[in-house]
Design a protein around this nucleic acid. Structure first.
Lengths: 256, 256
DNA sequence: AAAAGTGTTCGGGAAATACGAACCGGCTCA
DNA sequence: TGAGCCGGTTCGTATTTCCCGAACACTTTT
């Protein structure tokens, strides 16, 4: 069951290539024209035209022959985030959560089957992983992602699996459909989900979903190094702190 | 002297149309297929293909026939921001500045002649304008923008004016080339710049540039309602607070 | 039940892109 | 100093890809 990825009937190829190029620039952390030419399967001159077009609009910047993702995307991205009603309500609570726990606190929402961390706040002792706001992940690889999946209608979950599959990030990632559904059942009854080094080695998370009008609006979680994330601490303070934050967010969400 | 806008020799039109569509969705705050069709000058079926292609990749989301800018842009945008060395250094100082002043504190960088607010923090009494992170503006319309312009090499300023012109935002916006250059001279000697309702009615700003290795890396500013932004307050506390923040940022920047 | 408004599908013609070759400019190294 | 190299830019042509209108399917309105 690899990703089926049917896609649109008549995709606009040039648009796809455009985004492939930008995504490549991101993954490569900047690249020269020739590097980009090697990566995409296009002649130099074509890639050149793309890059110049994007640069002209501010979606790409060039410094000394190296092309980078431009800040114009931040305009669109931050705008997209303001459209998520959960964001303004949850932000202060996430800050508090990061402060209380000293760890990394996360807010994830689902869109199109992908998970996006729309806000992450590092506490004092937070792990120093590459955890920028806006990062996208696959739902089945994280605690928050599973918290959301567990509370989505069955057919949505099916569609998401169909679309994205269950790729493996570490050897602990859930890659089996049945295993996933079993765990989602548990999560639904317990109200909390866990990530035990399923996405990144050495990292554990606890998460809980956030509801609005009976639907999952997103999820919040706390991430820390395995060494500090003992069963006692999770069961004790962390779950309680998450519950608090969740309650406040849900309350404020229903009043907005 | 309206914008010349020469642009690339061989622009990729499909890529341009793609971004025009996304930018339209942003400006319109979401739109239906037919609305988008009316706005762009394309047949329904073409717009449909674009939208479906973008949706498939997470750059656009559709709910009940309304298309919106997708969160996937946040991934790219926030990533682009992490590439700006000024950002992590300045963020805590901006927070402090917002706290101290109670107003809106801003961090702007220039890229490709455009200004991007890569971080904005609202203080307790901050004006409630639409001031999201990532917002893009034209440099000549803001205090921070002028602070940056004043310290850019002459030919860069020329190129920027050539490219973007001096469009008017309020009746106080500087639209005259000579007037702008005169003001930039003053700013350069004084070390501070001002915006007296030149971009938005009722709003005043004070700003100062931030240097790194002798070049402008960006600028910081404080924005408030005209009523609270008296000459005394600006000359007194605000300039001092800005000077402090600027010094700390420049110090940390040189050590990184 | 008909009509109006949406979104979706289809196929042919035209235009935009892919493509390779040739050109240009800066660097390195002999 | 000059030849060669490496990267970026320009150009013209072949053809892929997109534009486009019309026809279809679906929902909602009256």
């Amino acid at each position: 069951m690899v990703q089926q990825n049917t896609g649109p009937k008549a995709p606009v190829k040039t648009a796809e290539r455009t985004f492939e190029l930008v995504e490549f620039l991101k993954d490569a952390d900047g690249a020269t024209l020739t590097e980009a030419t090697d990566a995409l399967d296009l002649p130099k001159s074509s890639v050149h035209n793309y890059l110049k077009t994007l640069e002209h609009r501010g979606y790409v910047v060039e410094t000394d022959g190296v092309y980078e993702v431009g800040l114009r995307f931040l305009d669109l991205g931050a705008y997209a985030r303001t459209n998520v009603p959960l964001y303004p309500v949850a932000e202060p609570e996430l800050e508090a959560l990061a402060e209380e726990t000293g760890e990394l606190a996360n807010l994830l929402v689902e869109q199109d089957g992908r998970g996006t961390f729309i806000y992450r706040k590092k506490g004092e002792n937070a792990v120093k992983i590459d955890s920028y706001n806006g990062q996208q992940i696959l739902l089945h690889t994280t605690a928050v992602g599973k918290a959301i999946l567990a509370n989505l209608p069955g057919e949505r979950v099916e569609a998401i699996l169909e679309r994205h599959g269950l790729p493996e990030k570490t050897e602990r990632t859930i890659t089996d459909r049945e295993a996933l559904f079993d765990e989602l059942d548990e999560i639904r009854t317990e109200g909390f989900s866990y990530d035990r080094e399923e996405r990144i080695h050495g990292l554990k998370c606890v998460a809980t979903p956030v509801f609005h009008d009976g639907d999952v609006a997103g999820g919040i979680s706390v991430t820390g190094p395995t060494s500090r994330m003992s069963e006692e601490r999770i069961e004790g303070e962390l779950k309680q702190q998450l519950r608090n934050a969740k309650n406040i967010i849900e309350l404020n969400l229903s009043h907005s």
